[in-house]
């Protein structure tokens, strides 16, 4: 049986129930791997620095993301589970790319590719996934203003902004594998793959960019999860 994954609660308040194989660790002992609490850049960066392997934002939900986070920890990876509001407000991509660079001894070039790909994936998860905003607005100044208005309204919606964005980076089959998962309605990934970005278009380049910096890009769970693979990224 796998060893329990210990979680340190860095704040106060109600704790969600933990799934089997996880336990609260009130003194932050050497076995603690995940931090749980209110999210700010410092807390997230701490959670991504050894000996910790991730950070889970307190949000008053049922804690269903803990089991997924534990699986990433057991696989030796790094994981973030954040609300949409936090993923929008903070540059979490840079934080986890920095954490991955340290943990997996990535070269600057690989860390840069990881940051670029994760940046696109997190943007998609926040804007299109959890907030359900279309890029079609972004074709004109007026459309951009409308887009901004809707973005602001939806970030104030407690249901939408409380949806989670989960980011994991872990070794897998000799490659570095990053996944970004949202809780939105999903989308037709096959359609996306068949239609590239128009040369003068204002949107549609995110998927192209992910494909250009990652060795493999795959969508799962109806488009709610993107899996990015970086072959040869891990030191032998």
């Amino acid at each position: 049986m796998a060893a329990a994954v210990h979680v340190l609660d860095t704040g106060t308040g109600e704790r969600p129930g933990l799934p089997a194989g996880m336990t609260w660790d009130d003194d932050g002992g050497c076995d603690t791997r995940l931090l749980f609490g209110a999210a700010d850049a410092l807390a997230i960066a701490r959670g991504l620095t050894a000996p910790y392997q991730g950070f889970i934002e307190r949000c008053g939900d049922d804690g269903s993301g803990f089991a997924r986070a534990a699986a990433v920890v057991r696989a030796g990876g790094l994981v973030l589970s954040l609300t949409t509001r936090t993923a929008y407000r903070l540059d979490v991509t840079r934080l986890i790319a920095d954490g991955a660079r340290r943990r997996f001894h990535l070269s600057e070039a690989v860390a840069g590719r990881l940051e670029q790909a994760l940046g696109e994936a997190v943007a998609n998860a926040v804007v299109h996934g959890n907030l359900g905003l279309s890029s079609e607005f972004r074709q004109s100044v007026n459309g951009l203003a409308r887009f901004g208005q809707l973005l602001s309204e939806r970030l104030d919606d407690p249901v939408l902004c409380g949806r989670r964005v989960e980011i994991a980076v872990q070794p897998g089959h000799g490659a570095l594998v990053a996944t970004v998962t949202d809780q939105g309605a999903g989308f037709d990934a096959a359609h996306l793959a068949q239609h590239g970005a128009a040369a003068g278009g204002k949107c549609g380049r995110g998927f192209v960019l992910m494909k250009s910096v990652a060795d493999r890009v795959a969508f799962e769970d109806g488009g709610r999860r993107v899996r990015l693979s970086f072959a040869g990224a891990l030191a032998p």
């Binding site: 940051e115 940046g119 696109e120 951009l144 278009g201 204002k202 949107c203 380049r205 995110g206």
Partner: peptide, 17 residues
């Protein structure tokens, strides 16, 4: 030091405008 695809779209829009 960093631009994502959304930022590229903003630049294209600025160029058009």
């Amino acid at each position: 030091d960093y631009v994502d695809s959304f930022g590229i779209g903003l630049l294209v829009l600025a160029n058009d405008e």
